[in-house]
Design a protein around this nucleic acid. Structure first.
Length: 215
DNA sequence: CCCTGATTCGC
DNA sequence: GCGAATCAGG
């Protein structure tokens, strides 16, 4: 992952908009780990963490503190799968549209999460569902379309260099216009939908098939 | 199980 | 610096 100014800017934008790390990762075609890791190094404001705050300011470490961490069992892992990186799908296999077929289970969790998290993720998800539903039947059981992606519904993950950023501050549609690296390239810059990184026009394009983009 | 973000640490 | 592996709470 090359962290250009643009990708970093997008990360910052999405991060500040309250999208989950995984969501940001999907939109940037990277893993959530990359998002979190980078966000940390950038010193981006931490988000409400689901787990207990690990660092205590002062007077910490009651002797009965939990063991720091298991011995670095860090296995030298198999980097064999790294080749799939270019294809951008990676571990997305687990992300299935099952939720669409199980509306009964959804409401409870949605209600639970909506209070604890920014609404944006829910909105994005909800907005994405209908198109996915419509397309689901048409989807053939092609297990690996991983060679020549027919369509790219979402913005390209990478950009190269200086492009004009929206001048006004605050949220702006970050949909890329033109080819990255070419002189005329710029971001849409229109006022985005509440909670979304894109304006209405581009959000409609961006959120087609949310978890099923194979680019 | 699923999700989430945080941290560690080999590279 | 990067991010997969891992941890840990909901």
């Amino acid at each position: 992952m090359d962290w250009t100014d643009e990708t970093i800017a997008r990360l910052r934008e999405l991060w500040s908009q309250g999208l989950s790390t995984a969501e940001i990762g999907r939109q940037l075609s990277i893993t959530k780990n990359a998002v979190v890791g980078k966000a940390h190094r950038l010193g981006l404001p931490p988000r409400p963490s689901p787990i207990r705050n690990r660092k205590v300011k002062d007077g910490e470490t009651p002797s009965t503190e939990v063991p720091r961490r298991k011995p670095p069992t860090r296995k030298s892992a198999a980097p064999a799968e790294a080749t799939a990186d270019l294809l951008g799908d990676k571990v997305d296999a687990k992300a299935t549209p099952a939720k669409v077929d199980a509306p009964k289970a959804a409401p409870a969790k949605a209600a639970e999460t909506v209070a604890a998290r920014p609404v944006v993720a829910q909105v994005a998800r909800a907005a994405a569902v209908p198109p996915l539903k419509a397309e689901a039947p048409a989807k053939p059981p092609a297990p690996e379309p991983r060679v020549a992606p027919p369509v790219r519904p979402a913005p390209p993950p990478r950009f190269t260099a200086s492009i004009d950023r929206p001048t006004r501050r605050g949220p702006s549609c970050c949909w890329p216009i033109g080819d990255p690296g070419t002189p005329g390239f710029h971001f849409c810059g229109a006022t985005p939908l509440p909670g979304k990184p894109y304006c209405a026009e581009h959000a409609a394009i961006a959120y087609v098939k949310i978890r099923d983009r194979r680019d």
